[in-house]
Design a protein around this nucleic acid. Structure first.
Lengths: 227, 227, 227, 227
DNA sequence: GATGAATGAGGGTTCATTCAT
DNA sequence: TATGAATGAACCCTCATTCAT
């Protein structure tokens, strides 16, 4: 935060997406180029923020990595904080729909989970989304609007969808307890922990993510009991 | 990080704890006062680091909060990074022994867990230790030696002790599967998630920590099955 | 010195002198402006260093005197020490060639000296070079590379050239003794002393530099004997 | 100078030399101890100032080297600048009388010089006095009162004595020219240069001080001519 | 007197942000 | 629109000086 204590809360409308009416062709080309630059900056910013944290990341490095001049960043984003917030937005918005849609399935849980693991490993863990999640969790407390947006638009809806999933599983007789309706966090916590384990302890004790999640879902939805 | 890239790794011997032989009374009083100051600075530092993160925390604020002048910090700690590292050390070292000792119990798991929950809620969640854990997880990737220390001296030994606990539970016939020996992370992940939930989403959806953990242990060690 | 103990020894390539290919006019204008700024900073730095000494000179004052912001200095020089070293380099490099070339003359010594006096008075004593020399001598012991550079690239070559001059004078029969070949320092020491006298005692007892040097060379090369 | 811009000009009366009337014996012991401490501090200060220059020298190091606490320095000297000024005083005052007395000799110059060389080498060059002279010359411009004291009480009288020496040599017929009466600086400049050469270039090209001075006096007072 | 912990002004350096080109 | 030089507010750290013990 340092000198950004004022917390500008409005998310600036993505400048590069507003197409000024120009000559048709050139306008299109410009808009395209602008969108590419925007994307390049966001991409670079994610890597820098993920590597150094929000406060220690330098816009100089973001610019360098994005292949633009430092000033150019300010053509697309009002300031460092806005860049950060838009970054989170951009990365998460498309995912939410998919997640919720996925949670509306009526497939038996045990068939569903193996697919879920695969999707998580491929679409989250192996991608920039893992960094986004880490950033939200680590920087969230200093960015109230991010936490709020994240809860309202992501965590809340997803948990609700998961609760629906659990409820339907109960109705189908697949689950006997409503504990996962009350604490859907229990379903995802190993995934969260795995995300952090990775950057901290993997070099000391690697974690087999797929096996971990499989074991976890076996415990939750498996037919054998632990005890 | 900024100018702290060089990573000075030695943990300075706690100045305030070394009592130079002086006149008995005065020497003791001085040493006591020094220890108090040291503690006040560490305390203040924890709060500032927890609130702002390492990079954004200002030693000026630490000093103000500790009720000392800025320069005084440097009488006790070589620099910002050393202050941070000693903070982590100091808070964790005494806990580890307790945890490992606790894990050597031979009490039935279900009797043990309720006690475990209580200890965690009171001795970790309700204390500065929660902030320390959060700091390690959020800043650890930028402080390799902290991550290393934390793994070698805390996480590793504790997980090992937990594995032992699980093995003995299996031998006693309390557990049928060795999955928790292979993935002891599964036992603690809800607690980790709860720590982060607290700072991020509690104002939107409060989490009943005790109930969450109880539900979690019920799933792991309870006699009823979820499915 | 304080925190500059590490002695970064590389002399950064003069930023303002590297012209990136740009549009011809603008590129030239930019480069010119940069070179001017660089020069202004070096100029201001020399005055501040000369007035206060390296350690006590404040970059704040250098910036103010140069008419730039404090941060601007760091666009042109890596740090205070580098600024200092480049200052020395810049001022001396062009002079050496001239000196050595001058020493290769075959003019009779007595005709040469009057010219030498004039050049020294005008080109050294009356200019910033006097301050540079003073700085090298006063700060040199704390900046080993400056002393080394100064010896290798300035003092050594110049003394060698002077020795050559003396040798040729001996061959021509102008000098009978080789004492000035063995101790060329004797030729320049009054000039050195005059440089320091100036800043210290001139207000109490002004020194007529020209007359001093003339008297000195009369003693060395004159046909009358003192005793 | 840094924060010592105010230039306190009064030389504090040496505190340790003022004997407070106490019990006779103890008072004497105390006074002696005090004088020793004062001397130790001055000694240490000279070494630190000589090594780092006035501005960069740290009183902490002076105290450490003197074997006293930092605060103790302030019992004997008002502040850093006073310490520095008293240092210069103390070292020079005793020398001046000797020099002037020596210059009142009526011995033939050539017999005198060999003795002079010996004294300079032993009593100045090989001692802390060399550092004092270097300090005066390098720091003098920033300490007007030091330069003034040095001129009034040392340089001026000594030069005057030297002039007298030269005049008498002329009267005795040993010297034909009055050039050394007009420019007595010419007599000492090689010694000054040798002092600086030592710290700067000795590792590249050692200078045989005795031989240098002998050659110098041979030129000035020898019976052979250079040309 | 002597100590050395404590102070806090100040300096070097960084970096988000601006603006002339 | 894009650039990157320039700005200057902060921040970490140092060190002369003070003061309670």
């Amino acid at each position: 935060m340092a000198r950004n204590t004022k917390t500008k809360e409005t998310v600036s409308t993505a400048k590069g997406q507003v197409e000024k009416a120009g000559s048709l062709n050139e306008g299109g080309a410009r808009a395209k180029r602008a969108a590419e630059r925007r994307a390049a900056i966001l991409h670079a910013a994610l890597e820098e923020f993920a590597a150094s944290g929000y406060a220690a990341a330098r816009l100089d490095d973001v610019a360098k990595r994005a292949g633009v001049a430092k000033g150019t960043i300010y053509l697309y984003f009002a300031d460092k904080e806005t860049l950060f917030r838009e970054l989170i937005h951009m990365e998460l918005t498309p995912v939410v729909g998919v997640l919720i849609h996925a949670a509306q399935t009526d497939v038996p849980l045990r068939a569903f989970t193996s697919q879920l693991i695969e999707v998580f490993v491929r679409e989250v863990f192996g991608t920039r989304r893992r960094d986004v999640i880490r950033l939200i969790i680590t920087e969230g407390p200093r960015f109230p609007t991010i936490a709020e947006f994240y809860y309202r638009d992501v965590v809340g809806p997803v948990l609700e969808a998961v609760r629906g999933l659990m409820r339907r599983a109960i109705e189908r007789g697949e689950l006997k307890s409503d504990v996962l309706v009350r604490f859907p966090q229990l379903i995802v916590s190993p995934a969260i922990v795995a995300i952090f384990w990775n950057g901290l302890f993997d070099r000391f004790e690697p974690l087999d993510l797929r096996a971990l999640l499989q074991a976890h879902f076996d415990i939750l939805f498996g037919d054998g009991r632990l005890s």
